[in-house]
Design a protein around this nucleic acid. Structure first.
Length: 593
RNA sequence: GUUCCCAUAGCUCAACUGGAUAGAGCAAUUGCCUUCUAAGCAAUAGGUUUCAGGUUCGAGCCCUGAUGGGAACGCCA
C-alpha cells in the first residue's frame, strides 16, 4: 500500500466508524488509479460500503467523498461516477513524497534469511534456454528479496552423479581418443555434452538388432552392451573404484569450468554449492525415522512407500526395494540438512512446473514427519519454454544452447548498435562491453517480463527484439537521462538539494511522479509474490512515462530556472529508479548507447 | 487409469488478484529529427477474452460442464 492509500484508508475508517460504528477490514478497501478519462487521481470503489450506508452506490460515494474532502487535507475535490469515487489530490503531496524516494537504498535487513535454490543443472550436458529462464528467475528473485530487506542464501545443487554422467564418461572413454577442452577448443560442458549425444547414437545402433527382433524401442536401448557397461560404471563409482572416480572427477571439473563461464556471462553467482554425490545418501536415515513413526510403510519386496491418498494424492515410493535412494529420498535429506545448517525462514526451490507433483509430495512428507519448517518449503514453479516444434529435448538436439544464444544476442546487439552509428567515441573494449550489456538486457527482459508461471514460446527463427517493449528500450531511456546528467555537469548546473514542491506540475510530470511513487510498494509486492515480472512491467511503465515527459517537455530549453532544475531532479530520480529496477532484474543500465 | 496446469488482437505478452469503455509491443498503414539520443513520440486499424451455462451491483478472473493444448505419477534424476 502506498503512503497515500494509507492516509485515505484512515479517513475511510473514520467515516465508517463515525457514521456506522463499523470497523473495516483492510481487505475491503479497494483503490485504483483514476482512469484518464475521468477527473481525479485516485479512485475508491464504494460498492463494499453501500450495504452499510443503506444507500445506492451514487449517494454513498457522495457522502464518503464529502467526508474525505472535509477531513483529509490532501483531498482537494471529488466526483462520483456509478460506484466509483474519484478523488483529487494536492499535487504538492506527490512531490513531497517523491522527494523522499531513494531507490538504491535497500530496506534494512530483518528476519531470518531465505534460502533460494536455483540453476541446479545435471553435469552431463551444457545449459540451455530452459536453464537460462531458471537462472534468471532465481537470480532476480534473490535480488528482489535482498532489496526488500531479506537476507538471501543462493544455493545450487549439482546433479553430478548417476547413470547419465556414466553415459558421457563411457562414451568419452571408448570414443574420445583422450580429447580435452584444451585439445578440442570446446567448452568443458559442451565437450561432455558431445559424448552424451555420442553415447545415445552408438547405443541406438546397438539397439537395432533388438528392435528388428520385435522388441519395443524403449526396452531395446536398455538391453545393449553399452547400457550394461554404463550401469557397471555406475556400480564401480558407487563402490568408490579409484579409476572410475578419477575419470568422473576429471570430467565433472571440465563441466564446472564451462558452467562457471556461462554463469559469469549471465552475471549470477551462488553462496553455497551442493553436490548430489555428497547428498544422495542423506535421506535414507529419515526413511527409517518415517517407518518407525508409521508415516511410511514397507512392502513385502522391501520398498518403502507413503500413502498420500488422504491428501488427494497417490501412494509414493520413497526408497527402492534394493534399498537405494530415489529422487525424493535425496530431497528429503537435503531439505532437512539445510534447515539444520541454516536458521532460515524459508527454502525456495526454483524448479520447472513439471515437478509440481514432486514438490507437493515433498512438502506433505515433511509435514507428516512433523518438521516445523514443512510449511516454509516453497516450490517456485515456472513454465517450460517451448519451441515451435514443441518441447526442448537434449538428446534429440532440439535445444537452444545457452552459450550460443548469448553469443547471438551480443552479435545482434553489435550489429544494431553499429547500424545506428552509436559506437562513435567508444574504445573497442567499451564497445564490446556495451554489446554484452545490451544483448543480455534484451535476453533477460525478454524472459523476465513474462509471468513466471506461464509457459512461453521461443521461436529461434525470430530474433529477440530490440525495439518496443524490450530491454534495450529501457536501457535507452536510461542512457538518455544519463546524457542529460552529463550536460548538467558540463554546464555546472547543480540539481542536488531540496525539491521545490510549490511549483505547479505539468500533466506529464505528475504522471511520472505517480509512477515513481509506485517503486517501493511494487518491490514489496514482487518480493511477497515472488514475481520478477511485476518489476519488469513496472520498468516499462516507468520508461514510457519518462519518454512521454521527455518528448513533451524540454529540460535545457526551459526558460524558468526553477522549473529546469526540478525537471533535472525528476529526470535524475527516474534514471536512478529505472537503473535500480533493472538491477533487480539483473540488467545493467548503460550511460550511453 | 489417477491428478495437475493452460486457453485474451494475425504473433508474443499485460490487465493492480472480482471493478469503469480488456491494455502494450511486434507485424500493417501514417505523421513527427535546423530544439536535451528517432533503440523515441503520436495516430489509424486489429477483440463475442475457446464454447455453453451459473454465482452478483459487477466476471478475462470465481463455480459447473464441454472442446483444444501441455505436464506429472505407476521402483529415472
Amino acid at each position: 500500500m502506498t503512503a497515500l492509500q494509507s492516509i485515505l484508508a484512515e479517513g475511510i475508517r473514520q467515516w465508517l466508524h463515525q457514521q456506522f460504528q463499523h470497523t473495516l477490514a483492510d481487505s475491503a478497501l479497494n483503490f485504483q488509479e483514476t482512469r484518464p478519462e475521468f477527473e481525479g487521481d485516485i479512485t475508491v470503489v464504494v460498492f463494499p460500503f453501500t450495504k452499510l450506508a443503506g444507500l445506492g452506490p451514487e449517494p454513498t460515494g457522495q457522502q464518503l467523498g464529502a467526508f474525505l474532502q472535509e477531513n483529509v487535507d490532501l483531498v482537494t475535490g471529488f466526483n462520483v461516477v456509478k460506484g466509483f469515487l474519484n478523488l483529487s489530490i494536492q499535487p504538492e503531496f506527490y512531490l513531497k513524497e517523491v522527494a523522499q524516494l531513494h531507490p538504491e537504498q535497500a530496506l534494512p535487513t530483518s528476519g531470518k534469511p531465505f534460502m533460494v535454490e536455483f540453476a541446479s543443472p545435471n553435469t552431463n550436458k551444457p545449459l540451455h534456454l530452459g536453464h537460462i529462464r531458471n537462472i534468471l528467475l532465481g537470480d532476480s528473485l534473490c535480488r528482489i528479496l535482498a532489496h526488500n530487506g531479506t537476507d538471501v542464501l543462493r544455493l545450487c545443487l549439482y546433479n553430478d552423479r548417476g547413470i547419465h554422467i556414466c553415459k558421457s564418461m563411457l562414451a568419452w572413454k571408448k570414443f574420445g581418443n583422450g580429447e580435452t577442452p584444451e585439445s578440442s577448443g570446446l567448452k568443458g560442458d559442451h565437450l561432455i555434452g558431445k559424448y552424451y549425444v555420442v553415447f545415445d547414437q552408438k547405443n541406438r545402433e546397438q539397439a537395432e538388432p533388438f528392435i528388428a527382433a520385435g522388441i519395443e524401442k524403449d526396452a531395446a536401448v536398455l538391453q545393449t552392451e553399452l547400457t550394461r557397461e554404463a550401469q557397471e560404471m555406475l556400480r564401480l563409482w558407487e563402490e568408490g573404484d579409484e579409476a572410475t572416480v578419477a575419470l568422473w572427477k576429471k570430467m565433472n571439473d571440465w563441466v564446472y569450468g564451462g558452467f562457471n563461464e556461462t554463469f559469469r556471462r549471465l552475471g549470477v553467482h551462488f553462496n553455497h554449492l551442493y553436490f548430489e554425490s555428497e547428498t544422495y545418501l542423506l535421506g535414507k536415515s529419515i526413511v527409517q525415522e518415517g517407518l518407525d513413526k508409521g508415516v511410511f510403510y514397507q512392502k513385502e519386496d522391501g520398498s518403502v512407500w507413503i500413502d498420500l491418498t488422504a491428501d488427494g494424492l497417490d501412494h509414493k515410493l520413497v526408497l527402492r526395494a534394493d534399498g537405494t535412494s530415489v529422487y525424493i529420498t535425496q530431497d528429503i535429506g537435503t531439505a532437512t540438512e539445510r534447515f539444520n545448517t541454516f536458521d532460515a525462514q524459508a527454502c525456495v526451490y526454483v524448479v520447472g512446473n513439471e515437478q509440481d507433483y514432486h514438490f507437493k509430495v515433498l512438502k506433505l512428507i515433511m509435514k507428516h514427519l512433523g518438521r516445523p519448517w514443512a510449511e516454509q518449503l516453497h516450490h517456485f514453479s515456472y513454465g517450460m519454454i517451448e519451441l515451435p516444434s514443441g518441447k526442448m529435448k537434449s538428446r534429440e538436439g532440439t535445444v537452444v544452447d545457452a552459450d550460443d544464444l548469448i553469443d547471438e544476442m551480443e552479435f545482434t546487439a553489435a550489429e544494431r548498435t553499429r547500424a545506428l552509428g552509436k559506437i562513435e567515441g567508444l574504445s573497442e573494449a567499451e564497445a564490446q562491453e556495451l554489446f554484452h550489456v545490451l544483448g543480455m538486457g534484451a535476453l533477460k527482459y525478454f524472459l523476465l517480463k513474462v509471468d513466471p508461471k506461464k509457459k512461453m514460446l521461443f521461436n529461434p527463427e525470430e530474433s529477440i527484439d530490440f525495439q518496443g517493449n524490450t530491454g534495450p528500450f529501457l536501457q535507452y531511456t536510461h542512457a538518455r537521462i544519463a546524457a542529460l546528467r552529463r550536460r548538467a555537469l558540463s554546464e555546472s548546473i547543480d540539481f542536488s538539494g531540496d525539491w521545490n514542491t510549490a511549483l505547479p506540475l505539468h500533466a506529464a510530470e505528475l504522471k511520472l511522479v505517480k509512477v515513481l511513487l509506485k517503486f517501493r510498494p511494487l518491490v514489496a509486492e514482487a518480493a511477497q509474490a515472488l514475481s520478477p515480472a511485476l518489476l519488469a512491467n513496472y520498468a516499462y511503465d516507468l520508461a514510457t512515462s519518462y519518454n512521454k515527459f521527455y518528448h513533451d517537455l524540454s529540460v535545457f530549453n526551459e526558460a524558468d530556472e526553477a522549473v529546469r532544475r526540478r525537471r533535472l531532479q525528476l529526470s535524475d530520480l527516474t534514471g536512478r529508479t529505472l537503473a535500480q529496477t533493472l538491477e533487480l532484474l539483473g540488467i545493467r543500465a548503460p550511460q550511453q548507447m
